[in-house]
């Protein structure tokens, strides 16, 4: 446990030292704030005390930002050889993978925590469905965790950060939108499967305030799959 936390803290520190964290926080708050309050289908346009507009913009900004945070994590260690040093310390592959996963998740949690003033503001303007807000946040956290584990996996594949960024987007876009677009074209069983595989289906249902075990199961298995593939990738390098 201590090893995982040690790695998480080092990664977090490196996010903040490299300005990556600040850039991400500012860009995320800037984008989501702009579209929540000032432009397009913002809170005032919708004329409802709800954070729906924030959740739908955060859904896309996180999709693009998360791979930018995770792309470095294994690619850079692979390229510079520090991975060898890390894995010859008394830590297991799992601890390394989890440590890196948690560090990005903590950064996303910080970013989301900084949007809580939006919630407070909206709540002070009108009657707000508190349950829907909290489950919306839960949806964002689960979705982020899923994309983090995909991003970490693609980072472990390549030595090149750009390659791992693009690969993460490529894999991610299927879950983000393509499966759901396809599912409306296919009917029947295939349509159902595709719709189940789509992150947007589960995110929408959670952010409406309905937290179903099916949705939780979907996100948790996606997270687990990404992490287990990353671990397998690390083990493969040592053969």
């Amino acid at each position: 446990m201590r090893a995982i936390w040690t790695i998480t803290m080092r990664e977090l520190q490196s996010f903040f030292d490299s300005l990556m964290a600040y850039i991400m926080l500012i860009a995320f708050l800037g984008f989501s704030g702009f579209f929540t309050w000032l432009f397009g289908a913002d809170v005032f346009f919708v004329k409802q005390a709800s954070l729906q507009s924030f959740f739908s913009i955060a859904y896309w900004t996180l999709f693009f930002f998360i791979p930018a945070l995770t792309m470095r994590q294994f690619a850079e260690e692979n390229r510079s050889g520090t991975l060898e040093l890390l894995l010859t310390k008394p830590v297991s592959d799992w601890q390394v993978v989890l440590g890196k996963f948690l560090s990005t998740l903590v950064l996303i949690l910080i970013a989301l925590a900084l949007t809580l003033p939006y919630y407070i503001t909206v709540a002070s303007i009108g009657p707000i469905d508190h349950g829907a807000v909290w489950s919306g946040y839960l949806g964002l956290i689960l979705m982020s965790a899923a994309y983090i584990s995909i991003g970490i996996f693609t980072s472990s594949i390549s030595n090149n950060q750009i390659v791992s960024y693009l690969l993460a987007l490529f894999i991610g876009i299927f879950f983000q939108i393509i499966f759901s677009l396809l599912s409306s074209n296919f009917g029947g069983f295939i349509g159902e499967v595709l719709s189940f595989l789509s992150v947007s289906t589960h995110f929408d249902s959670i952010s409406r305030g309905v937290v179903d075990t099916k949705d939780l199961l979907f996100f948790l298995s996606l997270i687990f799959l990404g992490l287990i593939l990353t671990e397998a990738n690390l083990a493969k390098k040592r053969l």
Binding site: Q13, G81, T82, L85
Partner: peptide, 8 residues
């Protein structure tokens, strides 16, 4: 080649 974290 003594790999180290250069940013630390």
């Amino acid at each position: 080649n003594n790999p180290l974290y250069n940013d630390m």
